[in-house]
């Protein structure tokens, strides 16, 4: 069975939901702890949402230097699939595994809603179960979710097809309506919306989060 690690930082909120989503989608969820550099032999890693280290300094800035992240960065650079959700996306940007940064929403409020997205790239480890251009509904909830990068970086992302998800109806001032991006290799994906909340009909209005976890299992089975 595919073993997917879910990291818990102090202040992580959605680690349990992410682990539950992993289990619901047929893989084994393996808890990983921020203060240990062990990845416990997992096949992939999810960096969950929340407020790691209280969002002190900048969202994700302190988590990025935790012992577990040293191992995650090495593993990601060696090709291991890594998914960063919300705060996890911020950690990936602070780690420079993904370019750009997340800043405060231009609407200056916390945004919490069911958000429509368009899938732009189905060639990543986490998106192959979608079809290109597919519209999906995923929960969005954050205060600092506006994606920004300089013009050159944006051009590079667009020209190389590395925008993974785009908002339909920009909720927060993200440049180019970017909701999620991938690295050059396609194994690292970060997005602000929360696919782990869209896996169970009891608590989510769609099941559009499931393909994320199905995609990575298919990807790993093919390796």
């Amino acid at each position: 069975m595919t073993r997917i690690g879910v990291v818990t930082f102090p202040g992580s909120l959605d680690d349990h939901d992410a682990a539950r989503a992993v289990t619901l989608c047929g893989a084994e969820a393996v808890p990983l702890w921020h203060a240990s550099d062990s990845l416990n032999g997992v096949d992939a890693v999810v960096l969950p949402g929340g407020f790691s280290y209280g969002d002190y300094l900048r969202c994700g800035a302190i988590a990025r230097f935790s012992p577990v992240m040293a191992s995650v960065i090495d593993a990601a650079n060696a090709g291991m699939p890594v998914l960063g959700i919300c705060n996890g996306f911020q950690v990936l940007c602070e780690s420079h595994l993904l370019p750009g940064a997340l800043i405060r929403n231009d609407v200056r409020t916390f945004v919490c809603r069911d958000q429509l997205l368009r899938v732009e790239n189905t060639a990543t480890a986490w998106t192959s179960e979608f079809t290109e251009g597919q519209e999906i509904g995923i929960v969005l909830k954050n205060g600092e979710g506006a994606y920004t990068a300089d013009d050159e970086t944006l051009r590079m992302l667009e020209d190389s097809g590395r925008v993974a998800f785009r908002y339909l109806g920009n909720p927060n001032g993200s440049r180019n309506d970017i909701a999620g991006i991938t690295n050059e290799r396609g194994n690292v994906v970060g997005l602000m919306p929360h696919p782990e909340h869209n896996v169970d009909p009891l608590t989510g209005p769609s099941l559009d989060g499931r393909p994320f976890f199905a995609s990575v299992q298919r990807f790993l089975a093919a390796v």
Partner: peptide, 13 residues
Amino acid sequence: MPKPEILDPQGKA
């Protein structure tokens, strides 16, 4: 400081 080209919602508020 936030770079000049970066939106500063706190400063705006």
